[in-house]
Amino acid sequence: MPTPPPTGPLVTRDTVATQLRLLGVEPGEILLVHSSLSSLGWVNGGAVAVVRGLLDALGPAGTLVVPAQSGDLSDPAVWGNPPVPEEWWDRIRATMPPYDPLVTPARGVGVLPETVRTWPGALRSAHPQTSFAAVGPHAREITEGHAPDCRLGELSPLARLEELGARVLLLGAGYATCTCFHLAEYRIPAPRVAVGRPAPGGGWETVVEVSISSEQFDELGHDFERDRTVVRGKVGAAEVRLFPVADAVAYAERWLPLHRPREEDFPYPHV
């Protein structure tokens, strides 16, 4: 059977820039973007065109930030999508390549973040599992100082984004992807977990971290949007939301203690 024609709309670099400006994206601002490329429609130039459109809307004084996570650098004992045989675990731990911000690909966050990570002039934070990549004048300020035992807390780029007045752009992505909600988890009582990963110099290491989960973020986002100002619109076919990082974090700090289980009932192993 012949391949069916692509479904629209046709989206170009100019489409992205123009519609973001109409939405209220301002030249010179800082945007933390969570994205789904496929939600936009048929994009002429793919992820590269979308990144160029984002940078056009932000202008030379603006800074584009994306999650560049590498969750595959983790303990195979907790893998579930897919799991691996238990008899492989020790060998995987012994041979897993350590994190290299210049080489380790972003995984599980879509095509756009990997495109930003490899963009000329892009900088990437140092955490081996929950890094962020940034392009623009504030890139170094945002990505520096990401502590190896602070995935998404006060010593991560999220706290810098909050301080700098950044906004979140959900570009065809839902609230379940909204990493800034995790910053609130570090500010409320939460269990701590042992997190395994390859050590920087080779071998294996375990660090104790705050337990994080995006399991209820869609529900949290629904309530946040109901109670706070969220700009909504479209870019191509994608539903888009735009809001300040600080507003989302402050709301989550109040919401999570009311809707999360108590620490002793928390559904994740803790130490």
Rank of each mutant, 00 (worst) to 15 (best):
residue 121 G to A: 03
residue 19 Q to C: 04
residue 66 V to Q: 03
residue 105 P to E: 11
residue 260 R to I: 05
residue 271 V to H: 12
residue 205 E to D: 11
residue 149 D to A: 10
residue 189 P to N: 15
residue 1 M to Y: 10
residue 181 F to S: 04
residue 49 A to K: 02
residue 106 A to K: 05
residue 52 R to S: 02
residue 43 V to K: 01
residue 106 A to F: 06
residue 172 G to W: 04
residue 14 D to V: 09
residue 72 D to I: 00
residue 171 L to P: 02
residue 131 S to H: 06
residue 222 H to T: 14
residue 26 E to P: 03
residue 244 P to D: 05
residue 199 A to Q: 00
residue 119 W to V: 02
residue 34 H to I: 13
residue 234 K to F: 12
residue 76 P to N: 11
residue 158 L to K: 02
residue 243 F to E: 03
residue 104 T to W: 08
residue 244 P to G: 03
residue 143 T to P: 13
residue 200 P to T: 14
residue 207 V to K: 06
residue 163 E to Q: 03
residue 179 T to R: 03
residue 133 A to I: 00
residue 260 R to E: 11
residue 62 G to P: 09
residue 146 H to A: 14
residue 105 P to N: 10
residue 82 P to I: 14
residue 220 L to F: 00
residue 68 A to C: 00
residue 203 G to K: 11
residue 216 Q to M: 12
residue 62 G to Q: 10
residue 76 P to Q: 10
residue 203 G to C: 11
residue 33 V to Q: 00
residue 152 L to Y: 06
residue 109 V to L: 14
residue 219 E to Y: 12
residue 7 T to N: 15
residue 167 R to F: 12
residue 180 C to F: 15
residue 58 L to I: 07
residue 84 V to L: 14
residue 12 T to Y: 03
residue 14 D to S: 12
residue 197 R to W: 05
residue 31 L to N: 04
residue 114 E to Q: 06
residue 116 V to W: 04
residue 79 W to F: 07
residue 112 L to A: 01
residue 47 A to N: 08
residue 93 R to Y: 06
residue 178 C to E: 03
residue 94 A to D: 05
residue 262 R to N: 13
residue 146 H to T: 14
residue 236 G to A: 02
residue 254 R to Q: 15
residue 92 I to C: 04
residue 44 N to D: 11
residue 137 P to V: 07
residue 72 D to K: 01
residue 85 P to N: 10
residue 116 V to Q: 03
residue 13 R to M: 08
residue 119 W to L: 04
residue 32 L to Y: 09
residue 255 W to L: 09
residue 204 W to E: 10
residue 216 Q to W: 13
residue 38 S to K: 13
residue 169 L to H: 03
residue 175 Y to M: 04
residue 206 T to D: 15
